[in-house]
Simulated scan of single mutants.
Amino acid sequence: MSVTTITSREFNQDVGRAKKAAQDGPVLITDRGRPAHVLLSIEEYRRLTGGAETLAEALAQPGVADFDFTPPKLDRITRDADLS
């Protein structure tokens, strides 16, 4: 796995190159000569995070029009808020 380092300016001018480089390893993006961000492929990100899917990823599944969602009921008694 190779690490590619590019400046923020280079990243802004050629995002496609950064995305392509991220397929071979992390892309370190510098700002004023200091490391500021890291671009990873989704596969590498999932490997590092244990493969857990985020809520946003679960909700953004392409090709899925609708699905049923019934949130669990709370077992505790709640009271109205006093807004006076």
Rank of each mutant, 00 (worst) to 15 (best):
Lys20Val: 15
Ser8Ile: 08
Asp66Gln: 12
Phe67His: 08
Thr5Arg: 06
Asp80Trp: 12
Ala81Arg: 15
Gly51Glu: 07
Asp66Arg: 13
Thr54Arg: 12
Pro35Glu: 00
Pro26Asn: 01
Arg79Phe: 15
Lys73Pro: 10
Val38Asn: 04
Glu43Ile: 04
Glu10Arg: 03
Ala60Gln: 12
Arg34Leu: 05
Leu28Arg: 04
Val38Tyr: 07
Leu83Trp: 13
Lys19Asp: 03
Pro72Met: 13
Gly16Gln: 00
Asp14Ser: 05
Gly51Leu: 06
Glu57Gln: 13
Asp75Ser: 15
Gly50Ser: 03
Thr54Leu: 09
Pro71Asn: 11
Pro71His: 11
Lys19Met: 12
Ile6Ser: 02
Leu83Glu: 12
Leu83Gln: 11
Pro72Ile: 13
Pro26Arg: 00
Ala36Gln: 10
Leu74Phe: 13
Phe11Asn: 03
Ala36Ile: 08
Ala18Arg: 00
Asp24Pro: 04
Arg9Gln: 13
Leu55Trp: 11
Thr49Ala: 04
Asp82Ala: 14
Thr4Ile: 08
Gly33Pro: 01
Glu10Cys: 04
Asp24His: 07
Asp82Leu: 11
Gly63His: 08
Val38Cys: 06
Ser84Gly: 13
Thr5Asn: 04
Lys19Arg: 10
Met1Asn: 09
Asp31Ile: 03
Ile29Lys: 01
Asp14Gly: 02
Ala60Trp: 13
Gly51Thr: 06
Thr70Lys: 13
Leu74Pro: 13
Thr5Phe: 05
Ala56Cys: 08
Arg32Val: 06
His37Cys: 06
Leu83Ile: 12
Gly51Gln: 07
Pro62Tyr: 03
Ala22Pro: 01
Phe69Gly: 12
Met1Ala: 12
Phe11Lys: 06
Leu39Ser: 01
Ala56Met: 10
Arg76His: 15
Arg17Lys: 08
Glu10Trp: 02
Thr4Arg: 06
Ile77Pro: 12
Glu57His: 13
Leu74Glu: 14
Ala56Pro: 07
Ile29Gly: 03
Thr5Cys: 02
Gln13Leu: 09
Asp66Pro: 08
Leu59Gln: 14
Ile77Asp: 12
Lys19Pro: 00
Thr7Phe: 00
Thr5Ile: 05
Lys19Cys: 10
Asp31Met: 03
Ala36Met: 09
Val15Ser: 02
Gly50Glu: 04
Ala65His: 10
Asn12Leu: 09
Phe69Val: 11
Gln23Ala: 10
Arg32Gly: 05
Arg47Glu: 07
